[in-house]
Amino acid sequence: MDEEPSASEEAPAAREEEEAASSSSSGHHEGLLFSLRYLGVWDLLAVERVCRSLRFAVQSDSLLWKCIHIDGPPLSERITDEALLRLAQKAQGWLQCLSLVDCSKITDDGLRQVLEISPRLQKLSVSGCRRLSIEGLIHNLKAFESSGLSSGFTGIKQLKLGRLFSLLPEHYEDLRSLLGRNEVGCQPIASKPQFYHCGVSSLACDDDRAIDIEICPECQNLKFVYDCPSESCRAKGLDHCRACDSCIIRCSQCGRCMKDCRYEETFLLDYICRGCLEAQSEDRMEE
């Protein structure tokens, strides 16, 4: 991230000094500063380059960096271990949620450095981080838990792994124990169902699942396990028609199973139920 995004073309030095002097004397509107907390990482980095006063406002407020979400290109393709560490340092120890999606340059050592300066971190997502290893992740989380206990912090409570990690049963047990689920072999507790949508699970730490991977009731493999939104299936119980997408074929649009349902296979080898196909046809006719 040596080249940070800019909100506009660089102003001449004289103009920038004039803006800084004007801002320091009158100050920015309170509503503008309040709105900064709703901006993402990319936008906050852009605001930093508008003028000196806004740069000071962004850099001096550590709560703006309490949740760091790197949710895909172009930022995920450019962020390195050093850049991630600089972002975490902006939180000044108040970082609570870190979501790294498809950050291919982040390594185990880079994540370790961020954990060392983020004692309040509780939610972590590393989906698509190809240079991370499951062994290195477990080692870093164990070290993070040990340092947190000595400082009075609770440690990681939610973890998103995505599809790239191949977990062995012993890895799964270690992670469950680290996340506060010491009952090995029990299914994770979730207050809301997980539905299949184009094979993509929720990547951000926005639900109450301790971990996104669990044991499939059908094949007993560690995978994403989905519930069925079909009313006929849900009427038979919460555990009925619950399995990974390899064991139960599901509609890529609504997530329902294909039992007793007409469906079609798309060019991308996805499946769409008849109900979703008819809804798409009606939308095209209205357009």
Score class of each variant (00 low, 15 high):
Asp2Phe: 04
Ala7Glu: 01
Glu9Lys: 14
Pro12Ser: 13
Glu16Asn: 10
Ser23Ile: 00
Ser24Thr: 07
Gly27Pro: 02
Leu32Trp: 07
Leu32Val: 15
Leu32Cys: 14
Phe34Thr: 00
Phe34Asp: 03
Leu36Phe: 00
Leu36Lys: 00
Leu39Glu: 01
Trp42Asp: 01
Asp43Met: 01
Asp43Lys: 04
Ala46Tyr: 01
Val47Lys: 00
Leu54Ser: 02
Phe56Trp: 03
Ala57Gln: 05
Ala57Asp: 02
Val58Tyr: 00
Ser60Pro: 02
Ser62His: 10
Leu63Tyr: 03
Trp65Val: 03
Trp65Ser: 00
Cys67Gly: 02
Gly72His: 08
Arg78Gly: 07
Gln89Tyr: 12
Gln89Val: 07
Gln92Trp: 10
Gly93Pro: 06
Gly93Ile: 09
Gln96Tyr: 04
Ser99Lys: 03
Glu116Arg: 13
Lys123Asp: 10
Cys129Leu: 11
Arg131Cys: 06
Glu135Ile: 11
Glu135Trp: 08
Leu137Thr: 05
Ile138Gly: 03
Leu141Asn: 05
Leu141His: 05
Ala143His: 14
Glu145Asn: 03
Ser146His: 14
Gly148Arg: 13
Thr154Arg: 13
Gly155Ile: 05
Lys160Trp: 01
Leu164Tyr: 11
Ser166Cys: 02
Pro169Ile: 05
Glu170Pro: 00
His171Phe: 08
Asp174Ala: 12
Leu175Glu: 10
Ser177Thr: 15
Leu178Arg: 09
Leu179Glu: 08
Gly180Tyr: 08
Ile189Ala: 08
Ser191Arg: 05
Lys192Gln: 14
Phe195Leu: 14
Phe195Glu: 03
His197Ala: 11
Cys198Pro: 01
Asp206Gly: 06
Asp206Met: 04
Ala210Lys: 11
Cys219Ser: 09
Cys219Val: 10
Cys219Gln: 07
Phe224Tyr: 14
Val225Asp: 02
Asp227Glu: 11
Cys228Gly: 04
Cys228Tyr: 01
Ser230Asn: 13
Cys233Gln: 03
Cys233His: 04
Arg234Cys: 05
Gly237Leu: 07
Gly237Cys: 08
Asp239Glu: 15
Arg242Tyr: 05
Ser246Gly: 14
Cys247Phe: 08
Ile248Ser: 09
Ile249Ser: 12
Ile249Gly: 07
Ile249Glu: 10
Gly255Lys: 06
Arg256Lys: 15
Cys257Glu: 12
Met258Asn: 15
Lys259Asp: 14
Cys261Asn: 13
Glu265Pro: 06
Asp270Leu: 09
Tyr271Val: 13
Arg274Glu: 15
Leu277Thr: 12
Glu282Gly: 04
Met285Ile: 15
